[in-house]
């Protein structure tokens, strides 16, 4: 249903992302708004930030974000204003918390494991071959005997 809705919105509004009339007069504030809106997901779209999206709701969020910044909100407060209503789902940069621990920790962990594995393998390969076990000794003996 949502997909259908998003599609209808897309068809109805061929506008392109940030519109001139949305922008703030203060360039510093506008730059902050642009930077923040690049990290916010357009809720009814698929993997688009509100900065890129033409959807109606993305427009609303852009305007609200600018209102909060104009009212003197800090970046965190303005983002908080949106996550309070829509949850962390809107953040394209997933915050570090229990449920995203694996996501954030995996890349460095993988790198460490991979390096460790390679070093271990290299060390093992350079080590002299392990002495034969008693069982292998016996087997060797029988093999040698068989050849004679």
């Amino acid at each position: 249903m949502k997909a259908l809705l998003a599609l209808l919105l897309l068809l109805a509004l061929p506008a392109l992302a940030v519109e001139p009339n949305e922008r703030l007069a203060d360039p510093a504030l506008e730059a902050r708004a642009r930077a923040l809106s690049r990290g916010l997901r357009c809720l009814v779209c698929r993997n688009e930030s509100i900065d890129e999206s033409h959807a109606d709701l993305a427009h609303d969020v852009r305007v609200l974000l600018r209102e909060r910044l104009s009212a003197g909100d800090s970046d965190t407060a303005a983002i908080r204003f949106i996550t309070d209503r829509y949850g962390d789902f809107v953040l394209l940069d997933p915050p570090l918390k229990t449920s995203t621990m694996v996501l954030w920790m995996a890349p460095p962990a993988l790198l460490v494991v991979a390096f460790g594995g390679v070093l271990l393998a290299a060390r093992r390969r350079r080590a002299p071959p392990a002495p034969l076990t008693a069982e292998e000794q016996a087997r060797l003996a029988t093999l040698l005997k068989g050849q004679e």
Partner: peptide
Amino acid sequence: TVFLGTLYPLALDLMTGEKISVGPPF
């Protein structure tokens, strides 16, 4: 890393029902 970033939201959704987005900043 790219694989995880692409599939993590789906995996988390399946396991806990929690929805997150993994976008360019990640």
